[in-house]
Simulated scan of single mutants.
Amino acid sequence: MQKTIRYAIADDHKLFRKGIIAALEDMPALKLVLEAENGRDLLNNLNKAKPDIILLDLKMPEMDGIETTIEIRKLDTDVKIIVITMLDDEKYVIHLMEIGANGYLLKNAEPEEIKEAILTAYENGYYFNDFVNKALLRKLVHKTQLKPVFNNNIELTSRELEVLKLICQEQTANEISKLIFLSPRTVEGIRTKLLEKIGVKNTAGLVMYAVKNRIVE
């Protein structure tokens, strides 16, 4: 039986909010559990709604998307946050990924990409489109204002390197498990160990570490 993905949406523009909800209605696996006009409204109802995915606008009254992301991560480290915004400035992408967002979409994204982002973030923990990938890589190249807290003298095992490379290829835990003949739980355990060893909080940090250290190109 396919698991139901519970999602919440926070956006102060009612027309856009309703449009997204309508666009997602043809996905039976999705269930809307919370609709909010701003970050504070979202946070006040988060524990009761218990969403798996949050679609979050950045510019909102009372509490914006950046403040909301920070507060969500204090409360729940498992819920996936996909930012949907008009702001196409790369500095927002970098900052949001660093503080715990799992994806970043522009509001002109096609409904199919929003659906793909939800499913990918739910299954894989993150969703990187070309816009996000380019922003992350450009930041690494220019090395401006990027201060990842990487641990020094890291020694990764051959298996950890193998999993890290596959994570950078956007493979899910289930897909990785089939490729290297391990259980999904074991793969998740290796991913957790990588986060601890490298000293990052999420998959974006793993990818940045791998690129910076030329583990992947």
Rank of each mutant, 00 (worst) to 15 (best):
Q2R: 10
K3C: 02
T4A: 12
T4S: 14
Y7W: 09
A8P: 02
I9R: 03
A10F: 08
D11G: 09
H13W: 00
K14P: 02
K14F: 05
L15K: 09
F16I: 11
F16P: 01
K18N: 10
K18Q: 14
I20Q: 05
L24R: 03
E25D: 01
A29K: 14
L32N: 02
L32E: 07
L34V: 05
L34T: 01
A36N: 01
A36D: 11
N38I: 00
G39Y: 06
G39E: 08
D41S: 13
N44G: 09
L46R: 05
N47L: 10
N47P: 01
K48N: 13
D52V: 13
I54R: 03
L56V: 02
L58T: 00
K59N: 13
P61D: 08
P61S: 08
M63V: 08
D64L: 02
G65Y: 04
G65A: 09
E67Q: 15
I70E: 12
D78C: 05
V79W: 12
V79T: 13
K80F: 14
I82A: 07
V83K: 00
T85W: 04
D88P: 04
D89Y: 05
E90V: 13
K91E: 15
V93T: 04
L96R: 04
L96A: 09
M97I: 01
M97H: 06
A101W: 01
G103Y: 02
L105T: 06
K107Q: 11
N108S: 08
N108W: 09
A109G: 08
E110P: 00
P111R: 10
E112C: 07
E112P: 03
I114G: 04
K115C: 05
E116T: 15
E116H: 07
T120Q: 14
A121F: 03
Y122V: 00
Y122L: 01
Y122E: 01
N124M: 08
G125R: 07
Y126F: 14
D130I: 12
D130Y: 15
V132G: 06
V132N: 07
L137T: 14
R138F: 07
T144R: 15
K147C: 15
P148G: 08
V149T: 12
V149S: 10
N151A: 02
N152G: 05
E155P: 00
L161E: 12
L161Y: 02
K165H: 03
L166P: 01
I167N: 05
C168N: 12
Q171P: 00
A173C: 01
E175C: 03
E175W: 14
S177K: 11
S177R: 05
K178D: 10
L179R: 14
L179P: 03
P184G: 04
V187F: 06
E188D: 15
R191L: 12
E196P: 04
E196M: 11
K197Q: 04
K197W: 04
G205R: 13
L206A: 04
A210V: 10
V211A: 12
V211K: 06
N213E: 12
N213V: 11
R214D: 15
R214Q: 13
I215K: 07
I215M: 10
E217N: 08
